[in-house]
Design a protein around this nucleic acid. Structure first.
Lengths: 244, 244
DNA sequence: TTGAACGATCGGTATATACCTCTTATGCTC
DNA sequence: GAGCATAAGAGGTATATACCGATCGTTCAA
């Protein structure tokens, strides 16, 4: 980099990411479905980069499901109605995205030796310490779900004394540099045991949705094993999936 | 195409895809988690291509979640235990993947004007014809779910007279060139109405899992709107999600 | 023995360039 | 007016090359 005094605030992001953002703002956001972007060669010239670099930026937009390309045809927007997040979201993010306020009550925090399902799913040796957190989570004060998370205690030293009423994802990311890259999830229908039903404020044996999730970082290391039980009358899981 | 008599059977696949397959077989499949691949420069030399092309092949493997890269470190396998499909799967594919045999009984086929939810989700004008199929789906003969699919009739002329007992995805792909690229899905817990319960062979008001899905092609055009009701005691939805 | 500096090695970004393949619109012929 | 050939223009693949930035092992000094 030169000693250019007007260096951008963008903190040394690669060009192709800067161009991606620029393309997003200029040609994608707010555009109707099927709207065509300028040809790659023109855009490359406009941005003063090679077509290779420009293509890399569009690759990103395509991977995010924001545009699609037709060989010999052009590059087009998929439209605002679509383009929903294909992302893995936490409860907090999800509830906020629906315009409601997430809160939590910590029911239980404990560190115990890895046993049963949690230890096996986290791929821990029997006896290794596991931090377990049970929380009741609400949206605008309404009980929505019961959540039982287990994390390898060695990955998150001191977590048990922190504020656990917010997003666990945010917390372990900020404090321990652990960022889930992807997760395996299992969803089933069940009925609520009396204890859980009471906490959620519904009759015993009401229908419920149970999601069991194991989150991994980019290296494939298990970060978190989490079982969440949702009230069926107040919550539905919503997500997008890619094929091929 | 040249008249080269020793043309590969690989039907003119791009080099980077051929290399991807080759890397998969030679360095990824069967390798333990954390196993390191040779450096990019070496691999490029071995395959007789530029590093740019070689990197493109590894990009594919990384996007499939099969390897991860560490700058300055190397490229590593994520391991066989992980690397489950992040793909959108059909019922047939899913059941087969679990080692069971999928079969279907067609309960109902009809073409009617687009009304209600189906028409809205498929983004059709009111009155446009919609093909609706209701099926009872089994695994090894056991009733697993009830499925109600709706497709724009104009996209699939003659589908109503074809064999609908197999995979609908496969059929519309083969016959009409329609390939779902991604889908939005909504999953909720519910209880079975008496009619549905009877078809699934369980008592009325048994718990059930209901998945509502809209599939789109790469252009963002809606292909299919589908509501599937699963027996809670026999089926759980399983999938993987990416985060960023 | 420890620790800091260095260099080799690895993946990450970017340039310039060439040619292929597919789509689409043009325009001519019948 | 319908239909087919053609050319222009779009994205897709691949080469060769250069340098940046992070990691890790080694070496050398304190």
């Amino acid at each position: 980099m030169t000693s250019n005094p007007s260096a951008p605030v963008t903190a040394k992001q690669p060009k192709y990411l800067q161009i991606k953002e620029s393309l997003l703002a200029d040609y994608v956001e707010g555009q109707p479905a099927g709207h065509m972007l300028p040809p790659e060669r023109i855009l490359a010239q406009d941005f003063g980069v090679t077509r290779v670099t420009l293509r890399r930026a569009i690759d990103e937009l395509e991977a995010d499901g924001l545009v699609y390309r037709v060989q010999g045809g052009g590059t087009f927007c998929v439209g605002p109605a679509i383009a929903k997040s294909l992302k893995l979201t936490s409860f907090s993010e999800d509830i906020r995205a629906r315009g409601r306020k997430p809160t939590s009550v910590v029911l239980d925090v404990a560190i115990s030796p890895a046993v049963e399902e949690a230890g096996r799913q986290l791929r821990l040796s029997p006896g290794e310490p596991v931090l377990q957190v049970r929380r009741l989570r609400r949206a605008d004060g309404e009980p929505m779900c019961l959540e039982a998370c287990a994390l390898p205690a060695e990955s998150v030293p001191g977590l048990q004394d922190m504020d656990l009423t917010g997003s666990l994802y945010e917390l372990v990311g900020r404090e321990f540099g652990l960022y889930p890259s992807w997760a395996e999830q299992r969803v089933e229908a069940t009925v609520l045991a009396p204890d859980d039903a009471k906490l959620l404020g519904v009759p015993s044996f009401s229908p419920a949705l149970r999601a069991t999730r194991v989150s991994y970082d980019a290296r494939g290391k298990a970060i978190e094993y989490c079982v969440t039980t949702y009230r069926a009358d107040r919550y539905a899981l919503q997500f997008a999936v890619r094929r091929d």
